[in-house]
């Protein structure tokens, strides 16, 4: 039963990743569709991280005692200033753990 579930889940996940990569799928992306999809990366990635940062423990936390929020704001400034993914990640994580120790 567990193996069956694992294999079926694999199929569902793989299908969702592969479906539109298949050229035989009769789907032509017009100018508008491409124009909309150009924003997909910025939109989806933001929709993934924002809830993590603003709702760290099940409820909205906009206080400056929320280490997720403070470290994320610093990460935004660092990313804007340096455009360096590794540097931004490492520095903001150090800050995050520091804040967590200090506040927690």
């Amino acid at each position: 039963m567990i193996w069956l579930a694992i294999i079926l889940m694999t199929l569902v996940v793989f299908t969702s990743r592969y479906l539109f990569l298949e050229p035989k799928l009769p789907l032509k992306l017009n100018r508008h569709a491409r124009g909309i999809l150009a924003y997909s990366s910025a939109a989806v990635l933001t929709a993934l991280w924002v809830p993590l940062v603003f709702i760290p423990e099940g409820e909205l936390n906009l206080k400056l005692s929320n280490p997720y929020l403070v470290a994320a704001l610093v990460a935004i400034v660092l990313a804007k200033a340096t455009k360096n993914v590794l540097l931004t990640t490492v520095l903001s994580m150090l800050l995050f753990f520091g804040l967590k120790q200090w506040l927690g």
Partner: peptide, 29 residues
Amino acid sequence: DFAVAATFIALVIPQVKSLPVLAAVLIAG
């Protein structure tokens, strides 16, 4: 989980170079 948030921030923010991208980020957020 903050590590994941930090990498996504680091990848998205440099993409914000025009008003529509800024709008996409703000609305998605």
